[in-house]
Amino acid sequence: MSIIKKELAVAALENGTVIDRIPSEQLFKVVSMLSLNTIPNSITIGNNLHSGKLGKKGIIKVADYFFRDEEINKIALIAPDATINVIRDYKVVEKYNVTLHDTLCGIVRCSNPKCISNNEPMSTVFHVTNRQPLELTCRYCTRTIKGNKIEIIQ
């Protein structure tokens, strides 16, 4: 019964991308991080779905859309366990976990109000200086931001 329910909750995809294993509380942040509101394709969003490991999870299906690496990997900042399934002709042809790149450009805001990146029309640049626990360092003012203090630029 539960298996059938799950399938009903998220319709099958012929071609496109399924982002799975998103923590429920981060689902809508992921939606806005990926600017899905600007994509004309059909998008199915499911939330609070049952998941063995996460308890509850969110899932996003985007039809006929394939994300570029740098586009999708940034969601690892808020959904580090998310998996990406690339679907072609109803089959999963590629499946991988999101991984943060060593350098993040224009994604995170610096928490230092005296940082040049908060005072000039420019992109922020952060280096991932630690992964577990996550720690980012601003290329400009060298301030370090810990995982739970990270502010995403919308």
Binding site: K114, I116, S117, N119, C138, R139, Y140, C141, T142
Partner: peptide, 10 residues
């Protein structure tokens, strides 16, 4: 010399 941090790197 600049009062903002990171100005020289930028």
């Amino acid at each position: 010399r600049h009062h903002l941090e990171g100005a020289a790197r930028y």
